[in-house]
Design a protein around this nucleic acid. Structure first.
Length: 510
RNA sequence: GCCCCCAUCGUCUAGAGGACUAGGACUCAGGCCUUUCAAGCCUGCAACAGGGGUUCGAAUCCCCUUGGGGGUACCA
């Protein structure tokens, strides 16, 4: 597939390095990538760092690592170069300056000498008068004498676009069709700032042209300034790329654009930054699957699909122009699905950094004992995020005397009293002392047999043991847990539990 | 305020005039399974914002209202 039947597709993700990459940006990049891969075109990464004040040096890492995390490799970009290098706008200053001057010569733009103070006063006055705010075009009508006087005095200036005073500007959005805007609603936007750097309006149009971008995917927040971009492109006599304004991603309340700032909704803090999702243990494949289905739909009857399938089916025309909130619960569900689809060994690898951090045990130590190999397969279907694993198995990584039995119900079997529960625990301990080999399967069989023999329900038997070894009411399956813990440690914990029950009993009767 | 965009279950969505008694997924509720918790399976609750047109026929087309979102910087 190609643009105009001729040009190969070239799309670009053009973030500005002003902070951490958030999910909205990642989704834009994802759709760019999908389109490039589908069409056999190029996916380009371009850094739009034309705002010196908002520049954040750390954001480059965030951008790059976020994109890589999702697996969106680019074909041209700052780090790998390409035919249109450099791909960092601050390194392309000269070209914007020339292009801006060119527009001035053509009469499509003009120098403006207004100070920021005058602009601020003007806006203030407009606001007070209840009028529409906007540049009053003071410098558009400067006489030649005034102009040369300003130049002679060295008054700092910007270059502004000379928007037609009348008529309408029409541009086309792939998802919304033709959109018509009256020129009198438009501003004489600044193209080149006083510091010599371009604004987005100029820089993006110039680069999109120079880099032969065929499709521009960007956030819906750009829709309002698209007519200005059309005017700029026309002034140069260039061809307009296909515009695709992606719906904004709303915060979970469904109100307002998801921002980088932390926000609480329904008493819960929700994630917005890519690295936060990463740190919470979402799998890249799950995130890819999830994000692809927000604003676009793979198939109403198939929720889970591979990258290849997504590339195969993706189409720009099918993108839904309506803003959407992220279905976070669906993400959790999907992530759980992907976790369960992992091989235990792959899951172990993915889990190691999380467990190490949360359990305070080094990764080498975690790998050296065999516990994880027994435990991971049984917690696999119980976790939806990687960061949930630690709380399932933390009891296996503490000393036996660190297990607390404070909750009195912990060691009491269903329909049993404290004395009977202690007996049950002693029975279990006897079994565990002899069983050979010390494996979940064998232990399980032994316990079953004993339960039948003494006429105790499985739940009543296993419950106290579970409490004894884990200190928890809810734990991974009991027999794998026992196997992971090992015979000595298990017997020690049961011993402590029995002692605890006896102590309780003594206190009560005494 | 002004300009622009959008509008199907709580949420993500299918639906491009008759196949709609509006489908799927998540969530939630109930059930089965079961050593706890999960997972799995089954069942259920739940939507075309409102009003006018157009048409034999409208969730689908048009208009208005309402609601929501975006923009209104020498930020992107």
């Amino acid at each position: 597939m190609s643009y105009n039947g001729m040009r190969p597709v070239r799309v670009r993700f053009a973030p500005s390095p002003t902070g951490h990459l958030h999910l909205g940006g990642l989704r834009t990049a994802l759709f760019d990538w999908l389109w490039a891969r589908k069409t056999g075109g190029k996916f380009i990464l371009r850094i739009e760092d034309t705002d010196r004040r908002r520049f954040d040096p750390e954001s480059m890492d965030s951008l790059v690592s976020g994109l890589r995390w999702l697996g969106l490799e680019w074909d041209e970009g700052p780090d790998i170069g390409g035919p249109c290098a450099p791909y960092v706008q601050s390194q392309r200053q000269q070209i914007y300056k020339e292009k801006a001057e060119e527009l001035v010569k053509r009469g499509a733009a003009y120098r403006c000498y207004c100070t920021p103070e005058r602009l601020a006063d003007m806006r203030e006055e407009q606001r007070r008068a209840g009028r529409r705010t906007g540049y009053d075009r003071h410098c558009r009508n400067l006489s030649d004498e005034e102009r040369s006087r300003c130049e002679a005095e060295g008054v700092p200036s910007v270059i502004r676009l000379a928007v037609p005073l009348e008529g309408v500007t029409v541009f086309s959005d792939l998802l919304r069709g033709d959109i018509e805007v009256e020129n009198r609603q438009l501003q004489d936007e600044v193209l080149l700032k006083a510091d010599g750097l371009p604004t987005y309006h100029l820089a993006a149009m110039v680069d999109d042209n120079v880099m032969e971008i065929t499709h521009v995917l960007r956030g819906e927040e750009w829709l309002a300034t698209a007519p200005v971009h059309r005017l700029i492109v026309d002034a140069f006599g260039w061809e307009m790329p296909v515009l695709v304004h992606l719906p904004v991603i709303l915060d979970p309340s469904g109100k307002g654009k998801m921002s980088k700032r932390k926000k609480m909704v329904a008493g819960k803090e929700f994630l917005a930054l890519v690295h936060e999702f990463q740190d919470s243990g979402y799998l890249p494949d799950a995130m890819f699957n999830f994000l692809t289905n927000v604003g676009w739909n793979f198939d109403p009857d198939q929720e889970v699909f591979s990258r290849e399938e997504a590339i195969e089916r993706f189409s720009l025309e099918e993108i839904n122009p309506a803003a959407a909130a992220l279905p976070y619960e669906k993400l959790d569900w999907l992530n759980g699905l992907y976790i369960r689809a992992l091989t235990p060994s792959a899951l172990k690898t993915a889990l190691l950094p999380f467990l190490s951090r949360q359990l305070g045990v080094s990764e080498t130590e975690l790998v050296s004992d065999g516990k994880l190999d027994v435990l991971i397969p049984v917690i696999q279907e119980r976790i939806k995020r990687l960061d949930e694993a630690a709380e399932w198995i933390d009891w296996a990584y503490v000393k036996s005397d660190a297990i607390s039995y404070d909750d009195p119900k912990l060691l009491i079997g269903r329909k049993l009293d404290a004395g009977q529960s202690a007996d049950i625990l002693r029975t279990g301990a006897r079994l565990l002392a002899e069983v050979e080999p010390f494996s979940a399967e064998v232990i399980h069989a032994a316990f079953r047999e004993k339960a039948d023999e003494i006429g105790v329900k499985a739940g009543s038997f296993f419950g106290p043991v579970r409490g004894a070894i884990s200190g928890k009411k809810v734990s991974p399956p009991l027999f794998e847990s026992i196997e992971a813990l090992g015979r000595i440690e298990t017997l020690q914990r049961i011993g402590h539990a029995v002692a605890f029950l006896e102590e309780q009993g003594a206190l009560e009767s005494g």
